[in-house]
């Protein structure tokens, strides 16, 4: 019997493919977002309500939708004139870099794309570990959930660059304390950029969309220099 030292990251293969995805998207100057949340926090609604603001800023974008079954989300997004590709994962609870690699030919056939939004499977646990090749991971949580969610699901908040607290219009009717939620999120990740929004009333959506638009424009301008 002998011992062999391996010292390898378990997700090394996923990370390699993610790096290649990132490279392919960067070569085209496309900014990629990995949108994550628990089911029902409003990822698809956020995309829908951002559409007008992104169009106003001439950000042409496409959406890759991850779900276990069906193409409900892709159809919702397409109604707004946004190209959307549905990926069904079957029983898998998250997207991985390999699935995104397969969607890239579809993404890259769209000329002049500045932004790719990847809507992950509604799940606050598993997507945290899987780099897809995105530029930033954005977590959505809603005021219909608990304001202690960042402390209960720290991995996803720690892996994210941006947090959107959605359904602020419902806050008066729930026990959700937005100030406490911000505090908890910043405990887990002191570098989080936090937005508050309501897709229903439109509050805060413009600011969030403007932030994403700026990231996309910056990335595109880096490519052109």
């Amino acid at each position: 019997m002998h011992e062999i030292l391996i010292e390898e990251k378990i997700l090394a293969r996923n990370n390699e493919i993610a790096a290649a995805n990132r490279q392919a998207l960067s070569e085209r100057g496309i900014y990629a977002v990995n949108l994550v949340s628990s089911p029902g926090a409003g990822k698809t609604s956020l995309i829908e309500s951002m559409t007008r603001h992104l169009k106003d800023q001439s950000i042409s974008f496409a959406v890759v939708e991850g779900d276990l079954e069906g193409d409900f989300d892709a159809k919702r997004v397409e109604k707004h004139g946004v190209p959307a590709l549905q990926i069904t994962t079957g029983r898998a609870c998250h997207l991985d870099a390999h699935l995104i690699e397969h969607s890239l030919p579809w993404v890259l056939k769209h000329e002049g794309l500045k932004l790719l939004i990847i809507e992950n499977v509604g799940n606050m646990v598993c997507p945290a570990e899987y780099d897809l090749g995105e530029d930033s991971m954005i977590t959505v949580m809603s005021t219909a959930e608990g304001d202690d969610k960042p402390l209960k699901y720290p991995a996803i908040f720690a892996a994210s660059e941006v947090l959107v607290i959605n359904k602020t219009d419902l806050a008066p009717y729930t026990d959700f304390d937005i100030r406490k939620a911000r505090e908890n999120a910043l405990k887990v990740n002191p570098y989080l950029k936090i937005f508050e929004a309501s897709c229903r009333t439109g509050d805060g959506v413009k600011e969030f969309a403007a932030y994403i638009a700026k990231l996309a424009i910056t990335k595109r301008s880096l490519k052109n220099t």
């Binding site: 019997m1 011992e3 030292l5 391996i6 010292e7 390898e8 378990i10």
Partner: peptide, 12 residues
Amino acid sequence: GDELDIISMEGD
């Protein structure tokens, strides 16, 4: 705290 690695294996 963010480690997810295989360190080593033993066998014949």
